[in-house]
Amino acid sequence: MIKLTYLQCVQWGTDPGTALSEDCLNMNIVRPSGLDVNASIPVMIWIHGGGFVNGAGVEPGFNMTFIVQQSVKVGMPVIGININYRLGTFGFLSGSDEFKDFNMGLLDQRKLLEWVQENVAFFGGDPKRVTIFGESAGAGAVGYQLIAHGGRDDKLFNGAIMESGSPINIRISPNKTGFAANYNELKRRTGCDKATSPLECLRTLPYQKLYDTINESRNSSVSLSGFNPIIDGDFVRKPGSVALADGEFIHMPIMSGGKSSPISELLE
């Protein structure tokens, strides 16, 4: 079994298991042992779930060792890749007119997909045969990649599998200030509300101070870590249901599924 390495993106609310870091844009690549670098075999990229606020590609249950092992056994060898992307406050902070950049966590995913295009051949992978797959918010993320930029096909992947998620299933704020209440509370708790530029103030806060402030506010009625994707007019142009109705998605074969009782654990 391949031991997964690297740090998880900053998150709150669950025991992260391993160390957190701001410097988390990494991936694990599992390839069949002894693979010829000229083999040019297909690639599977897992996008983890966790409501866009927690989770990591390096969770033990997402170890690609066994899927790669099985792929060799049945004569369909693949390279398995697991990516991280920024989450919550670090990945999706928004809520005022100060912001120029949105949905950084989704852009992280896109950037990592581009990296795979440029580099996977050096590992023996075929950049023209890449399937992205994910579960829950990871499937929602696959959905966002399908409708990104109005459904523009940047040829980053040719297959998409959504396990309990879709371009539609994530509730999304219709405007750029949908998280204003969360942002205002974050400013207040950090003292950045008194700064000339609160966003610049937040950016220059020491990491530990920002982390601790959010952590100490875990029971606040307004979440300081629960930032999620929004309609930004560029990467995410429309709510998923509208994008699909307007045909603004990459037209490719997909797989899409769910469980028999998918949400019951949330109702305890």
Partner: peptide, 27 residues
Amino acid sequence: VSIIASRRKTCEVWAANNLPVYSYRFD
């Protein structure tokens, strides 16, 4: 609300666009 309805809708949209979609239920 959170999963099944949008899974079905996604399948319907893909099918309406004459695109292959394979739907499953894990039980």
